[in-house]
């Protein structure tokens, strides 16, 4: 392949990986913007979406229903997390909430290991999703294009929701000033629950894309995506939804770029270099690329 073609191909790669990261980071950022907490159990919502697909296939659920079912379960999981683990701690300081989210994550992982299996469970994805199509000289994977498409679709829908619906406007208002929002007569529980449900939906979509890539669901698989999402969200400016999306694409570009240009002998240090670049950005912009405290501008 000619140099130029490789470059364009790698750009498509970066866009696709960045899209997945953006969806993940957006899920974290929605909750953070309202509650000021990072939900480290976000990854387990991906895992639960994956197990839903696995059990749906085993239970012969019609294929057309599997995706909506997985997304519903993901939203319900996030809402339950809020109701069971975080609502009783409403108003506690950030550290308490952070530790609680770690505990939720740990408990869920143990439950998956003990109640389902310690072994990964295969999730056969139909061959139509694993293929690729050609655009000129470029091979574009179906999953790759799906993740780019899903990112833009979700960002678009979320923007509409936040700008055009009462609940969306309430979430934005809560992100700016929660006490005042409550004084306006909005119920805190509804706003927070909605934020969690949205983050669950985002986790469900990224979970499905993640599972489609890996072909299996594993009790401990939630950790890495939430870590990437965390980095992307910090990079973009935590709590800022636009920032989360840009941070995701930025992280994807760094990772693909380094993989493409670094010589073999330096490759093992790729993650270290990528994270150093992130630190470098944060040194110059401690609030992240788009971070201004308490702002939601999707």
């Amino acid at each position: 392949m000619a140099e130029m073609e490789i470059l364009i191909q790698q750009c498509v790669n970066a866009l696709s990986l960045g899209g997945t990261y953006a969806l993940l980071a957006l899920g974290l950022a929605v909750v953070f913007s309202v509650l000021g907490m990072i939900n480290f159990a976000h990854g387990e919502i991906l895992t639960i979406a994956g197990y839903t697909v696995f059990f749906a296939i085993v239970g012969n659920v019609p294929p057309i229903l599997i995706v909506p079912l997985a997304l519903l379960v993901a939203m319900a999981t996030a809402a339950l997390m809020e109701r069971i683990a975080f609502r009783p701690l409403r108003g506690a300081n950030g550290t308490t909430l952070l530790i609680t989210s770690f505990a939720v994550s740990g408990i869920l992982q143990m439950l998956f290991q003990n109640l389902i299996s310690t072994r990964p469970r295969p999730v056969p994805i139909s061959a139509s999703l694993t293929g690729a199509f050609n655009v000129g000289p470029f091979h574009i994977g179906v999953i790759q294009s799906l993740s780019i498409f899903a990112t833009f679709a979700m960002v678009g829908l979320l923007t509409l929701f936040l700008k055009r619906t009462m609940l969306g406007i309430a979430i934005r208002a809560a992100a700016v000033d929660f006490p005042t929002t409550r004084l306006m007569g909005l119920r805190a529980n509804r706003v927070i629950l909605a934020a969690f449900a949205i983050s669950g939906l985002l986790a469900g979509v990224s979970g499905l894309l993640w599972i489609a890539q890996r072909g299996s669901v594993d009790p401990l698989m939630g950790f890495l995506p939430v870590l990437k999402a965390f980095i992307a969200a910090i990079l973009g400016g935590i709590g800022n939804l636009t920032g989360a999306v840009i941070g995701g694409f930025f992280l994807g570009a760094i990772e693909i770029g380094l993989q493409a240009v670094l010589p073999e002998s330096v490759q093992p240090f790729r993650d270290a270099i990528a994270l150093s670049l992130v630190v470098l950005v944060l040194l110059y912009r401690p609030q992240g690329l788009f971070g201004a405290a308490h702002s939601v501008r999707p």
Partner: peptide
Amino acid sequence: GQQDFSAQVTK
């Protein structure tokens, strides 16, 4: 766990 091999595959 990176799950993205597009850069390696392109190589």
